[in-house]
Design a protein around this nucleic acid. Structure first.
Lengths: 97, 97
DNA sequence: TACGATATGTCTCTTTAGAGACATGTCTCA
DNA sequence: TGAGACATGTCTCTAAAGAGACATATCGTA
């Protein structure tokens, strides 16, 4: 079905806007209070790209190179499936939004 | 934060009504189309009880013994935290329920 | 009485995930 | 020039998870 929570969080963050690793770590902390170790994230990003869920381009910003990721249609499928699942669960739990 | 998807599904199913292992497997398939192997579920249920998220009682039904699980307040905390997280994600994704 | 469904459990093997260290390099500002 | 933020990567060790078999026992029905 899905992957795990971390994979999904990364896919969802990147889906909202193209992001690079360092920023993903910042966002996860700021938006969700979740700390992601970079030693876990960078290999994960490379895996997600290798498996076709994300694609990257390198961008030089003031001499520092960022590897910016965007979601692919294959990645969007995962996110959409997850969103449907969320909706189902929300309805099941009777939560009002 | 949380545990994994399987743990949460089990906690949420048991929270809806007291259930035993065999029925959880049936429900997961009927309600979500997800197959749970019994070799994974029974140890998990025992762990969740040992850690205080669930409590069980044995009930004899027509000579067959069922181990019926109920959620504890500690288990409810996990479910509620997860529901808040769901709500957050739903709002973030702009999904209408 | 044999089969399929109900019901719960363990065990081993393999794969995957996680913690944390090792490694490198730039930029900005004090 | 030194500290802290920015930026990305690998590696090893350990812990956890998953697949699938082994194991047992009852009930209902054909």
């Amino acid at each position: 079905m899905f992957r795990n929570f971390l994979d999904l969080m990364v896919l969802r963050l990147v889906q909202q806007e193209p992001l690079w690793g360092y920023k993903i770590i910042k966002y996860a902390m700021e938006k969700h209070g979740i700390s992601i170790r970079h030693g876990a994230l960078y290999p994960l990003l490379n895996n997600l790209e290798r498996e076709g869920y994300l694609k990257s381009r390198k961008e030089a910003m003031n001499g520092r190179v960022r590897k910016i990721y965007e979601i692919t249609s294959k990645g969007m499928k995962i996110v959409n499936t997850y969103n449907d699942y969320l909706k189902e669960q929300i309805e099941e739990a009777g939560i009002k939004t």
